[in-house]
Nucleic acid binder design. Structure first.
Lengths: 168, 168
DNA sequence: ACAATATAGTCTGTCCAGCAACATATTTTT
DNA sequence: AAAAATATGTTGCTGGACAGACTATATTGT
C-alpha cells in the first residue's frame, strides 16, 4: 500500500514515466557506437564528420551558424575546425559581406572524404535500423524528424533558423 | 560536378547520412531540458530520478545491475547513491543471499517522492510529444522501445539482462 | 583450510565539454 | 566620429565522466 497511487495515474499507456528517456538514450548510444566506428579515421570522429557534413550540405554563412546548428560551443568549434583545417578537409576564408566573420568551405579533398564516410555512416544507420521493416524505418524517421524540428524551433538560444531553411 | 556521386547513393530516402543522429540528438536535448526542470528539486536531477525509478520499478539485486542498466559508471554511481541516501530517498542494505553486495531499496519517503515526480515527468514527456497525434505517439514509443531493446541486448559490456527480465 | 574470484567502495589522475572573461577586428548605430 | 554591438579566437577555470590501482569483504572452488 506504499505503492503507486499517483504513479499509476501518471502512466500514459503502460509505460513508466522516464522510460522514454531511457529508450532514447539507449538508441542514441547504439547509434553513436556504430557511428563512431564508421568515422573512426576521421579527425575528431563524430563531431568532425558532423561539421564537415554541415559545411557541405548546409553551407552556413559563418562559424556561429555552424556551431549553433550542431549545438557546439564556440570555443570547442574553434579547435575542432583547427583540426579539420590541419587535415585539409575544410578552409577558413573571409566571409564575403562581413569581414569579421569567416566562412568555412570544404576542400575538394574534404568533399571526397565526406562522400566516402557518408557511405559508411549510411550503412551504420541501416545497421541500427535493421530490425525494423522498410515502412517502419520511414515512419520512425519521419516522426523523429518532426519532433526534432519542433524542438529546434522552440530552442530559446542558438536558433539561426533563417540560415538553414534552404533544402537542396 | 564536385558534387555527390557516392553521397547520393548513400542516401536512403532523401536523407543526408548523419541526419538521424542530428534528429536523435535534438529530440534527446529537448527531452532532457523538459526532464531537467521537471525534476529540478530532486538530488542529482535526472540521474537521481532515473536511479530512484529503477530502484523502485526494477528492483535490481545489486549496484552493478543498477549501474549497468542505466549505463552509469561504478564510481559515479557511488557518489550518486551517497546523495540519494543522504536525502533519505533510498537505503543501502546488505543483499539477502550475497552479503558482499548491497541492495538499494527505496524508503517510504523515496516512494512518495518518486510518485510526485513521476507525474511531472509524464507531463514533460507529453509536452515533448504534444505535436504528435495520439496514435503517432504510441507508434513512435513502440518503435523506439523496440530499437532500444535491440541495442540493449546487443551491448557487449554491461549486460546483466538476466537481472531485468522480470516485469511486474 | 586455502586460493581464486567477485562485489563494493575509495582515491588518484586524466580528459573534455562548457562557461566566463578578455582581446582583436569589423560592423552597425547613434 | 564616437559608441555599441558582433564574430572570432585565446586563455583559464570548473565540473563531470571515466579508467586504473588499491583495500576490504565475502563467496566459491579445490
Amino acid at each position: 500500500m506504499t505503492g503507486a497511487p499517483a504513479a499509476a495515474a501518471a502512466r500514459t499507456h503502460g509505460q513508466i514515466p522516464g522510460d522514454l528517456g531511457w529508450n532514447l538514450g539507449m538508441v542514441l548510444r547504439g547509434y553513436q557506437s556504430r557511428f563512431e566506428e564508421a568515422v573512426a579515421d576521421m579527425p575528431e570522429g563524430i563531431r568532425g564528420y558532423q561539421v564537415l557534413s554541415a559545411v557541405v550540405h548546409r553551407d552556413p554563412p559563418n562559424q556561429q551558424a555552424l556551431g549553433s546548428h550542431l549545438a557546439i560551443d564556440r570555443t570547442v568549434l574553434t579547435y575542432l575546425l583547427d583540426k579539420l583545417v590541419a587535415a585539409r578537409l575544410v578552409e577558413r576564408v573571409p566571409a564575403a559581406n562581413d569581414r569579421r566573420a569567416r566562412k568555412i568551405i570544404p576542400t575538394t579533398q574534404g568533399r571526397r572524404a565526406l562522400s566516402t564516410y557518408e557511405v559508411r555512416v549510411a550503412a551504420a544507420e541501416q545497421s541500427l535500423l535493421s530490425g525494423l521493416a522498410q515502412e517502419e524505418v520511414a515512419l520512425l524517421s519521419g516522426l523523429i524528424q518532426r519532433l526534432a524540428m519542433e524542438v529546434h524551433r522552440a530552442q530559446p538560444n542558438s536558433n539561426p533558423c533563417e540560415a538553414m531553411d534552404h533544402l537542396p
